[in-house]
Amino acid sequence: MTPDELFDTIADGLSPLGATAGTMFGKRALKAHGKAFACLKGDTLAFKLGDGTPAHTQALALPSAELFDPSGKRRPFKDWVAVSQVNAAHWPRLAETALDSLTS
């Protein structure tokens, strides 16, 4: 499954919980309540998990995961973790966790 196909699958699965597909920085994003919680950049999906939360720490521990730097100018967003397609099996769970953090 391509990153775009998996993104669409995740978006469909989270739509009953209020998630919608949109854009952020010109990239495909998942939003709820007017706020983005996931952003697809190439073959990487980034999640807003909150710096210092257990979910953030666990996501950063995944191989090749890193803080999300949408500009590529070494200014990463501390609350966001970018997870490469290598770990795409974790994307649905991370997306749901990021969505939950917006509503809690």
Rank of each mutant, 00 (worst) to 15 (best):
Phe77Asp: 05
Ala61Trp: 07
Gly22Arg: 03
Gly34Glu: 06
His33Asn: 10
Leu60Ala: 00
Gly18Met: 06
Pro92Ser: 14
Ser64Leu: 07
Leu60Val: 05
Ala38Asn: 01
Pro70Asp: 03
Phe68Gly: 06
Lys73Gln: 06
Pro54Phe: 05
Arg75Val: 15
Ala32Met: 01
Ala88Gln: 10
Leu45Cys: 06
Pro54Met: 12
Arg75Cys: 10
Ser64Ile: 10
Asn87Arg: 07
Trp91Pro: 15
Ala65Lys: 00
Thr23His: 04
Leu30His: 00
Val81Asn: 02
Leu6Cys: 09
Ala38Leu: 08
Arg93Gln: 15
Thr57Ala: 05
Arg74Thr: 15
Ser15Gln: 05
Lys48Leu: 08
Gly50Val: 09
Ala89Arg: 07
Asp79Asn: 05
Asp69Trp: 00
Gly50Leu: 06
Ala36Asn: 05
Leu30Glu: 00
Glu66Ala: 11
Val81Glu: 03
Gly52Tyr: 03
Asp100Cys: 14
Ala55Pro: 13
Gly50His: 00
Gly13Ser: 10
Val86Asn: 13
Lys27Ser: 14
Ala59Arg: 02
Lys35Cys: 09
Thr20Val: 13
Ala59Lys: 01
Ala65Gln: 02
Ala89Asn: 15
Thr97Asn: 03
Gly22Glu: 02
Leu94Lys: 04
Ser84Val: 09
Phe68Gln: 04
Gly50Gln: 01
Leu14Val: 10
Ala46Ile: 03
Lys41Val: 13
Lys73Trp: 04
Ile10Asn: 03
Lys31Pro: 15
Leu17Val: 14
Val81His: 00
Trp80Phe: 09
Thr97Phe: 10
Arg28Pro: 13
Trp91Asn: 08
Val83Asn: 04
Lys41Ala: 11
Ala36Gln: 09
Val81Ser: 00
Lys27Glu: 14
Asp43Ile: 12
Glu66His: 08
Thr20Ile: 13
Arg28Lys: 09
Val86Tyr: 14
Lys31Gly: 15
Pro16Arg: 11
Trp80Glu: 06
Ala19Cys: 11
Asp100Gly: 15
Thr9Met: 13
Gly52Pro: 03
Pro16Glu: 09
Arg28Met: 08
Met24Glu: 02
Phe25Ser: 14
Ala88Phe: 06
Gly13Lys: 04
Asp12Gly: 14
Gly34Val: 12
Ile10Cys: 01
Lys31Val: 14
Ala82His: 00
Gly13Trp: 00
Lys78Tyr: 06
Leu6Asp: 08
Gln58Gly: 05
Phe47Met: 06
Leu40Thr: 03
Lys48Ala: 14
Gly42Leu: 09
Asn87Asp: 04
Gln58Arg: 07
Asp8Ser: 12
Ala19Glu: 01
Gly13Thr: 08
Thr20Gln: 14
Leu67Tyr: 04
Thr57Gln: 11
Leu6Tyr: 07
Phe7Glu: 06
Ala65Leu: 05
Leu94Arg: 00
Trp80Ser: 10
Leu60Asp: 11
Ser71Val: 13
Ala88Val: 14
Gly52Thr: 03
Gly42Gln: 03
Ser84His: 08
Trp80Arg: 01
Arg93Lys: 15
Thr97Trp: 01
